[in-house]
Structure formats: structure tokens, C-alpha cells
């Protein structure tokens, strides 16, 4: 059984919304990446995306783009992501997922990437520019399956029913829905059309639904609470890190995450 399923069961049992948070590996530094993930787990994250920095992150807005650029300038390598994940696996229980662009996976070698990810204790991969349509030449989804890694499908509000069905086939864990059409980045408001989109998704996908892109406040989380199983927060956390004094990154991150999911007890 994949640890993503175990965590999903726990969330359902506790009748609450799950939270997936995000770090860029090597931002602000490799050392801080490790401590940030530990902090995120303490603050209540259920899943954590470790984004491998890429020179040309197509689906990312300015916040994550800049974080990638800075990490790469410091010399962060793809192999560092595996090292960080393996190190974390000894320290945290929260399921870890790699988020990466396909070129990094392809150059590393698809098979080798998947076996090394498994060895490092990673539970799933989110590769937004590796569509199911190219599987015949890449054998990426097959390699994930072989290594018990969940290849998380990312779908968008403009996805047609046909595309949703294509993606739903063989999908495991949860489905990653974009709350709006655009690149990643914190927004003031959640697009009200998201509710209709999520309804469409739930008719097609029989697995839990996660929503990301633009989520940055408790009111966003509250709005989505009844619609979805997991909320995903990425750029907003990096924004909080950037606002914070370097020495207080852990504290600011913890406070920010708690402010998103705090429930009156």
C-alpha cells in the first residue's frame, strides 16, 4: 500500500480537510529545505511536494520561478533532491512527492528516476508536462507503477470531459485540480467557477480531489472545505518565507500554515 492512501484514510477518518504544502529543493538552501519540511509536518501538512528546480518552469508564476532560479544559481542538482528526500524520510512521516518538469526526469533517465525516487522514500510524482498522451514513447507511467509511485494527474478548468476521462484512467492517490486557468501564484480571490469545475471532476474521478493554484488564505480553505479533500498551498508559503527574517523562517512558516487550517477546538 502507498503511504498516500494511508494518509488519505487518516484524513477521512478525522473528517477534516487535508493539506499539501510545497518547497523548492534548495530554496532558500538545502539545509533549510530539510528543516522547512519538518516544520510543515509539525504545523499539520499531510503531504509535501518537493519541487526539483528547473531552468524553465513553464507552469510556474514569478514566486516559484524566482525560487528555482535562486536554487539553481546556488548549484542545486537533481541528485540533491533524492538526497534531501532520503534524509527527510528518517525524520518525518508525512508522505513526500516530487514535483518536477519532465526534462529533468528524462535526462536523469525515466527508469532510474523512478527507482531512485522509491529508494529515497518518495510516494508520488507530479510531472505536469508529461501527459498521458506521450506514454507510448516515454513509459513514464509504467515506471511509476512498477515502483509503487503514484503519478498524480494534474487537470485544469478547461479540461474537456474527454480529457478528464483520459486522465482518470489508472489515476491513483488523488487528482490535482487547478483552481483557475493560469500559472502558479497566490491570488486574492478564488475563482467562483471552481465549484462547477469540481463537480465535473467528481463525476469522472473516483479518487479524492485536491485543489491548488492561487490558494493563500484561510477563507480560501474554508470556501473549498466542503468541495474537496485536500487543499494545496505552494507559492503563498514561499511568499511568507520571503517576507520573513532569515532566522525566523521556521516560525513564520509554521504560523502561516497554522493560520490556514486552524480550527477552533
Amino acid at each position: 500500500m502507498n503511504s498516500i492512501d494511508i494518509r488519505l484514510r487518516k484524513i477521512q477518518k478525522e473528517k477534516r480537510i487535508g493539506l499539501m504544502t510545497h518547497v523548492v529543493v534548495g530554496y532558500p538552501s538545502l539545509f533549510e529545505t530539510v528543516s522547512l519540511v519538518e516544520t510543515m509536518e509539525r504545523a499539520g501538512a499531510d503531504f509535501i511536494e518537493l519541487q526539483i528546480p528547473f531552468s524553465d518552469p513553464l507552469a510556474d508564476g514569478p514566486t516559484i520561478m524566482k525560487a528555482c532560479e535562486k536554487a539553481l544559481r546556488k548549484g542545486v542538482r537533481v541528485r540533491d533532491a533524492f538526497r534531501v528526500a532520503a534524509q527527510l524520510k528518517k525524520k518525518v512521516e508525512v508522505p513526500l512527492l516530487f514535483m518536477a518538469y519532465y526534462n529533468n526526469v528524462f535526462k536523469y533517465g525515466v527508469k532510474r528516476f523512478c527507482t531512485d525516487a522509491k529508494k529515497a522514500g518518495v510516494s508520488g510524482l507530479i510531472i505536469p508536462d508529461m501527459p498521458i498522451d506521450e506514454e507510448h514513447g516515454e513509459h513514464f507511467f509504467a515506471a511509476c507503477k512498477k515502483n509503487n509511485l503514484y503519478a498524480i494527474r494534474v487537470i485544469s478548468p478547461v479540461s474537456t470531459i474527454g480529457r478528464l476521462k483520459k486522465n482518470a484512467k489508472g489515476a491513483k492517490g488523488f487528482v490535482y485540480c487547478m483552481a483557475r486557468q493560469g500559472t502558479t501564484g497566490a491570488q486574492k480571490k478564488i475563482d467562483p467557477n471552481v465549484v462547477a469545475f469540481l463537480k465535473k471532476v467528481k463525476e469522472v474521478f473516483k479518487i479524492p480531489v485536491a485543489v491548488g493554484f492561487g490558494i493563500s488564505k484561510k477563507e480560501h480553505v474554508d470556501l473549498l472545505k466542503r468541495q474537496v479533500d485536500i487543499v494545496i498551498v505552494g507559492s503563498a508559503i514561499i511568499d511568507a518565507i520571503n517576507r520573513s527574517n532569515r532566522k525566523e523562517i521556521a516560525k513564520s512558516t509554521q504560523q502561516f500554515i497554522e493560520s490556514l487550517i486552524k480550527v477552533p477546538r
Binding site: L58, A59, Y102, P128, D129, M130, P131, D133, E134, G137, R153, V154, I155, S156, P157, V158, S159, T160, R163, N167, M178, Q181
Partner: peptide, 20 residues
């Protein structure tokens, strides 16, 4: 043929561009 020239070409884009 989905725009492949041997092993090159193709359509490696995020889902949000697929419909367009």
C-alpha cells in the same frame, strides 16, 4: 501521427494547454 518525427516532436504540455 501526433506530431512525432521519429522520437522527436510530440506534445509535452501541461493539461491546461491540451484542449487548445
Amino acid at each position: 501521427n501526433h506530431g512525432h518525427f521519429g522520437k522527436y516532436g510530440g506534445r509535452y504540455v501541461p493539461e491546461m494547454l491540451m484542449p487548445a
